[in-house]
């Protein structure tokens, strides 16, 4: 009987927890090694510009003369290529995503010298 089957499904579902998470009160922890956000250990960087040239999204800007390294997190497509190619291994990828923002920030200003 379809009605009986439906009623039993409805009762089963009523007793269950919701299938969705109550975001933003509960955030699922990121998986280990998930590609989230590029971070730099700036003292190690030699501003060689390899990451800028190789980045498929042109998200990184470096300048060796003025010692500038900036990244636009909204341009970055999280491919992790820059981490692989950096000769000084000063880039790394956090597993948490870059935070949303109400403005389009452009390059991360804190890293400009």
């Amino acid at each position: 009987m379809p009605i009986a089957k439906m009623t039993s499904s409805v009762l089963k579902i009523l007793g269950k927890k919701p299938s969705t998470r109550a975001y933003p009160f509960y955030k699922r922890p990121a998986f280990k090694d998930a590609r989230g956000k590029i971070v730099i250990d700036i003292p190690l960087c030699i501003y060689c510009g390899i990451c800028m040239r190789r980045c498929p999204a042109n998200a990184i800007f470096t300048n060796i003369k003025e010692k500038v390294w900036t990244i636009d997190h909204f341009r970055c497509v999280n491919c992790k290529l820059c981490v692989d190619v950096c000769p000084k291994k000063c880039l790394s990828m956090e597993s948490d995503q870059a935070l949303p923002s109400t403005t389009r920030l452009g390059p991360e200003p804190s890293l400009k010298k």
């Binding site: 998986f31 280990k32 590609r35 992790k80």
Partner: peptide, 15 residues
């Protein structure tokens, strides 16, 4: 998608 993200690091763009 969770399995994919756990094994590759990305949800739909595996990389």
């Amino acid at each position: 998608l969770d399995i994919i993200e756990e094994t590759t690091g990305g949800r739909v763009i595996f990389g």
